[in-house]
Simulated scan of single mutants.
Amino acid sequence: MALVFAIIAGMVIGGGVVGFQLSRRWKNEVETAKQDMQQVLEQHQREVEQTKELQQKVADLEYQLGSAQKDLNYYRNQNQ
C-alpha cells in the first residue's frame, strides 16, 4: 500500500513540476511574443507616419505642378 501511495505521490509531484516548468516556459514565450508584437506595432506606426508625410509631399508637389501649369498657360496666352 505504501508503494502505491509513493508511486501516486511521485506522479503528482512530477506532474506538478512539469506543469510548473511548462507554465514558466509558456509565460516566457508569451512575453517574447508581446515584445515582438510591440516592435511590429512601433514599426507600423513609423511607416504610417512616413506614408502620411509622403502623401503630404505628393499633395504639395501636385499643387506646385498645377500652379506652374497655370502660370505656363497664362504666359502662353499672353504671347498670342
Rank of each mutant, 00 (worst) to 15 (best):
E29W: 10
F20G: 10
A6I: 07
Y63P: 02
V58G: 06
R24Y: 14
K57Q: 09
E42L: 11
K34W: 07
R24F: 11
Q35C: 07
Q78V: 14
L61I: 05
Q35S: 15
R46S: 04
Q50I: 06
G14C: 03
Q55C: 04
D71G: 02
Q78M: 15
N73F: 14
A33C: 04
L61S: 03
Q56G: 00
N28T: 05
I8H: 08
N73S: 12
M11Q: 10
R25I: 03
V17A: 04
D60E: 11
Q50R: 12
A9W: 07
Q21T: 00
K70S: 07
I8N: 08
E29S: 06
Q55T: 00
R76N: 10
W26A: 01
R24A: 10
Q39G: 13
L54T: 04
Q78L: 15
F20N: 01
V18E: 07
Q69I: 09
G16V: 04
D71L: 12
V30G: 02
G10A: 01
V18T: 08
R76A: 15
E47Y: 12
A33Y: 05
N73K: 12
G15V: 01
R24K: 11
V4I: 13
M11D: 03
F5R: 01
R25H: 02
Y63W: 13
V30D: 02
K57V: 08
V58F: 09
W26C: 00
V12C: 12
Y75F: 13
T51Y: 14
H44P: 00
N79A: 15
I8L: 11
L72S: 07
V30L: 08
Y75L: 10
Q21E: 05
V17C: 01
R25M: 00
D36K: 11
V48H: 01
D71R: 04
M11H: 01
V30A: 05
Y74G: 06
N28D: 14
N73E: 15
I13E: 08
V18M: 12
G16R: 04
A68N: 09
G10K: 01
L54D: 14
Q38M: 06
M1P: 12
I8A: 09
V4S: 14
G66D: 14
G15H: 05
E31N: 04
N79M: 08
I13K: 05
G15Y: 05
K27L: 12
V40E: 15
L65Q: 09
N28P: 04
L41H: 10
V48K: 02
T32D: 15
H44V: 04
Q50E: 13
V48T: 03
T51E: 12
R46Y: 06
N77V: 06
Q64E: 11
S23P: 00
G10Y: 00
Q45E: 13
Q69K: 01
F5T: 00
M37H: 14
V30T: 01
G10D: 00
A9E: 06
D36F: 14
V18F: 11
R46A: 11
M37S: 15
I8W: 09
Q80N: 15
D71M: 13
L22Y: 12
K70G: 06
V4R: 10
Q78A: 13
Q56N: 00
G15P: 05
V40P: 06
V18Q: 02
K27D: 12
